[in-house]
């Protein structure tokens, strides 16, 4: 459904150095550097997938989303979505997509949410019946019935985000782009938003492309992740597989009565050590957890012990590190 091949985009950015002299210099003779925002991206997305599109700040996530939603024209490459090239047939294409920018609102600030919804109904030429149905569904699943008559400026961040997401789904889009939808939300709102994304994905087969820095979003939602860094795709795959690959790593934390023993077990790496506490990362493909515990109990007078899988957060951090981005 989404086919992206060889997509590249670079930006010209004026070079600015600190200091008044160089500011003058660049005023008289501006110099530009070219930044390759994305470089030769290729991927396919099938209908009904939820893609976690992740990468550190400045990796090119937003640029990709902007190209895929028809806002930007790439320098090179092709992108076919639902049979359209997004930047060519803008008006017809955007009818089929919904976009939520976590940091930008699409609702009118000073009037009740419902007024914005009604305007969207006319902008997208949504038939009355479909509008009513969608509104009912959105109101009940997003729990926004109380909010519709409130001016947007009086809503909390979480309430606003729920209304934003509602606004982007009124016209039955087949694809939903979410750019950091949970940024700044409290725990309850985050869970509500996640739950809702899951629901519409299941019930309406909406394909979701989600960028986020919140790894819990990814864990809760994404069936597949695409990792991008410095404009290139570094990893594209199933989240479960990725987790398994990294889950040979377990973390053992032990509390013990004072000891200065030094450990040296193959397959075990020291994370941190204090007088009473030790954290180890264990590679279970080299040494079994039970063996490792055995060895430890011989060396230390154990008071407490816990074994954890590495959280997804850490997996991603180690991925960033691995790819040096």
């Amino acid at each position: 459904m989404i086919e992206v091949s060889g997509l590249s985009k670079s930006f010209k950015v004026a070079k600015r150095n600190p200091g008044i002299i160089s500011a003058l210099k660049s005023f008289v003779h501006p110099q530009f550097t070219t930044i390759q925002a994305i470089d030769d991206l290729t991927f396919n997305i099938k209908q009904g997938e939820i893609i976690g599109y992740i990468g550190p700040n400045g990796a090119g996530k937003s640029t990709t989303i902007k190209i895929m939603s028809g806002i930007l024209v790439p320098d090179k490459g092709n992108c076919k979505i639902l049979g359209y090239t997004p930047w060519k047939d803008r008006v017809n294409y955007v009818k089929n997509i919904g976009v939520v920018f976590g940091q930008r609102s699409q609702l009118f600030w000073d009037v009740p949410v419902m007024d914005s919804y009604n305007l969207l109904k006319d902008i997208y030429k949504i038939p009355e019946k479909m509008f009513e149905e969608n509104l009912d569904l959105l109101v009940s699943t997003l729990d926004i019935s109380q909010l519709l008559d409130t001016p947007v400026r009086q809503l909390s961040l979480g309430q606003k985000m729920r209304c934003e997401i509602g606004a982007s789904l009124l016209h039955n889009p087949k694809i939903l782009f979410l750019d950091e939808p949970t940024i700044g939300l409290d725990a309850v709102s985050k869970i509500a938003v996640r739950q809702f994304i899951k629901t519409i994905n299941k019930e309406k087969q909406v394909t979701v492309i989600l960028t986020t820095h919140d790894m819990q979003d990814i864990e809760a939602l994404a069936s597949r992740i695409i990792l991008i860094g410095k404009g290139k795709i570094l990893l594209d795959g199933n989240l479960a597989k990725l987790k398994n690959q990294f889950n040979s790593q377990k973390v053992i934390t032990i509390d013990y009565s004072e000891s200065n023993e030094v450990i040296n077990i193959p397959g075990v790496k020291l994370i941190s050590q204090s007088k009473e506490r030790l954290m180890l990362s264990v590679d279970t493909s080299i040494i079994k957890i039970s063996d490792c515990i055995n060895l430890l109990s011989k060396k230390y007078d154990l008071l407490d012990l816990s074994v954890d899988s590495r959280p997804i957060e850490e997996i991603i951090v180690s991925l960033y590190r691995e790819y040096q981005i």
């Binding site: 806002i71 803008r90 008006v91 017809n92 955007v94 920018f101 930008r104 902008i123």
Partner: peptide, 14 residues
């Protein structure tokens, strides 16, 4: 500046 124009480009109207 505020990025509202991106939003405009996402709507199926002129």
């Amino acid at each position: 500046k505020s990025g509202t124009f991106d939003r405009i480009l996402l709507r199926p109207r002129s």
